[in-house]
Computed example of a mutant assay.
Amino acid sequence: METKIFSKKQIPEAVELLKKGELVAFPTETVYGLGALATNEKAVKGVYAAKGRPSDNPLIVTVSDEKMMENYVNEVPERAKKLIKHFWPGPLTIILFVKEGTLPDAVTGGLPTAAFRCPDDEMTHDLISELGKPIVGPSANTSTKPSPTTAEHVYHDLKGKIAGIIDNGPTEIGLESTIVDLSVETPTVLRPGEITPEEISKVLGEEVLMNKGTTQTKGVPKAPGMKYRHYAPSAPVFIVDKEADFSKIKWDKETGVAALDEVLDKIDSSNKYSLGKTIDKAAHNLFGALRYFDSENNIKRIYVQGFDHGAISPAYMNRLNKAAAGHHFH
């Protein structure tokens, strides 16, 4: 299969492919997603096959607006209306109860809930609006690998496996959306992202919990990224929590390092990847760093700077801990 790169003016062509059950990757403000018509079970199963993704891992349903979402949920509770008004379109995914029979089990994992998101990207908004139905939107990468932040990343992983990629340049945020579960008594963030639990709590005017484990029903995770190892390059990743510990590492041609500029300046290595000057920038650049070292065949181990402060660090550390399988350098 030829994988075609689409520009803005070619969106109608991408829409026709989706209608036929083909897979098309699309841009968002967070990472690139892999689209298939959410109501077409065969197409959705094709997403699992293309990614090599476990089939009990539910998929996010990507909509053009709240009105489209209303066709698939039992109700839009007041909590959801407040969050949608404040954060949509944007990097917030909301879990709600779905109308029975509106979405295939391949989307929901057989659960009575589904995760809905309306991304802040004009090209993707136009794509879904013209299609007239939602699309699934897991990250457009090979399962377990770092999520893609450019069309080139998608092409590297999925060329020949999907029909097309809509290219809207590098993503703005670089980490996947925050996922908040509104199907439970107390709103609970299942996956941290740029929008923090504190921001959600402020909008709702009530307590918001942060899930620390893997919220599951009958062994099925309620949201993507909760059950399996994710975001990992081929070489093992180690988290360096203290800046001083970088001086204990033996640097050679098989060792890569990703850190803030002020840390890299003190390291004598030819295999450096800048995470930028701030934690915000590090979150944006993390997947790019992991993908860069994954493409370097000589790299056998990767050391990445960890953080324990700042509003964005929970999302950054969530992804980095999964990439490193919890391994820290001491």
Rank of each mutant, 00 (worst) to 15 (best):
G46Q: 09
I84E: 07
I5Y: 00
D308Q: 13
G101D: 10
L204R: 05
N168G: 15
S177Q: 09
P314Y: 06
A259K: 13
Y273V: 09
R117M: 09
P54H: 12
A114C: 12
P12T: 13
K8F: 14
L23P: 00
R229K: 14
I128R: 04
E206G: 06
F97L: 06
F26I: 10
Q305A: 09
D280S: 13
H309G: 12
R319P: 13
D167A: 11
K82R: 15
V61L: 11
N271W: 03
T186S: 07
I179A: 10
I195M: 06
A49F: 11
L23D: 03
P233H: 14
M226D: 06
E16C: 04
T196S: 15
D241K: 14
D56C: 11
E194P: 00
S247H: 08
E198Y: 11
S139F: 04
G109F: 08
K300M: 04
L83P: 07
P314E: 08
K212T: 07
D265M: 07
P27S: 06
V208S: 10
T255E: 02
G310E: 04
T150F: 05
N74M: 05
M226A: 12
G213F: 02
S270K: 15
T30S: 11
K99G: 02
Y228D: 14
P187K: 02
L131Y: 07
L275P: 01
K99W: 00
G225W: 03
A283K: 07
M317H: 09
E185Y: 01
L37F: 04
D120M: 11
V31G: 12
L83Y: 11
F287T: 00
G46L: 11
Y273H: 13
K45D: 09
V240S: 03
A25S: 15
S143G: 02
G205I: 11
K242G: 01
N40L: 08
R191L: 05
I11C: 12
A289D: 01
K9N: 15
M69E: 12
W88K: 05
L59D: 04
E185P: 02
P148D: 07
L59V: 07
N271C: 03
G52C: 11
E41C: 03
D120V: 02
G90H: 08
L17R: 15
A50E: 10
P146L: 12
V98D: 00
S143H: 15
D268M: 01
A232I: 03
N271E: 15
T3Q: 02
E172I: 11
D261K: 14
N141I: 06
M210T: 15
F238Q: 14
T278N: 07
K85C: 01
E100T: 00
L23E: 04
H284R: 15
G160W: 04
K20W: 05
L34M: 05
M123T: 04
